[in-house]
Computed example of a mutant assay.
Amino acid sequence: MARKSLVVEVADSVLDRIVSGELPVDELIPGELELCETLDVSRMTVREAIKTLAAQNIIRVERGRGTFVNPINMWNSLEAVVRATTAGVGAAAAAVQLIELRRMLETGACELAASRITEGQLATMGELLDAMRAAHASADLDGFVEADLEFHDVILRASGNVFVSALYEPLGRVLSSRRRETSAFEQIQKHAIAEHEQILAALRQGDSTQARQSMDSHMQQTLDDLNTYVLKQ
């Protein structure tokens, strides 16, 4: 795994202080010199880190006044929002909200894909489903997660809607780091394989209604499994 750049490390350090509440909303964050001394980095590194956070709208620079923390609903970095939400409402609530977001995006994408998906994409999904089965049988968690994520990516691309893919791309980065948590359970993997089989069957039939319902069923099963096996509620 590539080491984070020093600029990213500094930006993460400042974000950690924001997420923890040490730097509240509308609070003036420390100046460049103070951050340089605290983090033992150059002024240029701090400046670039501040630019990174400002580009994500996590902070705002007010000329003549300083740099302030923005409310979370103004942030445009999904990873940062997930970190803050997890810290604020708890990992359980954040996980549920992520599934709710996936449900809104993926059910519609699957409905669109039913009438637009190509034979090549269907063949790829079949191969990915086989890869999920093989990974499950051999207890290959990484292989299972990779095939699972790619299966969903094919559906998003098959929807033919560029906005869907663009909206989902940052969410996909978050999911790739969190899917291991749920997929570590053997029973959850079994459920996922069965649900993916139903989704693929609906897409092969070109049935838009059934495709949407199958994806919705999968999202509900994912939520149920999260509560039963991970959150144990």
Rank of each mutant, 00 (worst) to 15 (best):
S138W: 00
G206R: 04
R102E: 10
M125F: 07
A158V: 02
A137N: 14
G120R: 07
A134V: 00
R43T: 15
C36T: 14
M125E: 00
D12C: 12
N73T: 06
V19G: 09
G88D: 11
I59P: 12
D225T: 00
L33E: 14
A109W: 02
S115A: 15
T118K: 01
V7E: 15
L33M: 10
D224E: 11
E79K: 12
S20Q: 02
A84R: 06
F185M: 02
Q121R: 06
G172L: 03
T45I: 12
T182R: 08
T124G: 04
N227H: 04
D130T: 10
T86D: 15
R180T: 00
R17W: 05
E146T: 09
A11N: 10
Q210M: 07
L101A: 14
Q213F: 01
F185H: 14
S13R: 07
A80G: 11
T86P: 10
T228K: 12
G64N: 08
H218G: 02
R180P: 05
R116E: 12
V10Y: 07
D26N: 14
E48L: 13
L101Q: 08
E79N: 13
A91T: 08
D224L: 04
R17C: 11
L28H: 15
Q97Y: 05
D225F: 02
H218N: 09
D153M: 05
H191N: 14
D26T: 02
D16S: 15
A2V: 04
L78K: 09
T222R: 07
L39N: 06
G172N: 12
L141A: 12
Q198D: 14
L175M: 13
V41R: 08
S20Y: 03
T85H: 05
G31Y: 06
V41D: 11
G66C: 06
G108Q: 03
E37F: 00
R47V: 00
D12R: 05
R180A: 11
G126S: 09
R43K: 13
A113G: 10
I155G: 12
E100K: 14
D153Q: 11
V154F: 04
E48V: 00
G206P: 13
S115V: 02
T86E: 15
M132L: 06
A2I: 04
Q198N: 13
A84P: 11
V154I: 13
E62S: 10
F68W: 04
E79M: 03
R173P: 04
F185L: 04
S13I: 01
D224K: 07
N227G: 05
V25R: 11
L23G: 13
V10H: 09
S217I: 01
N70F: 02
L105N: 06
E9A: 11
L203M: 06
N76C: 11
D140N: 15
L149Y: 03
L23D: 10
E169N: 08
S159T: 06
T38S: 13
G172S: 11
M219D: 07
T222P: 02
M104I: 01
L129G: 07
S77E: 06
F144S: 10
A202V: 06
T67F: 07
Q221I: 02
E127Q: 13
S20C: 05
A91V: 05
A11E: 09
C36D: 08
A139G: 01
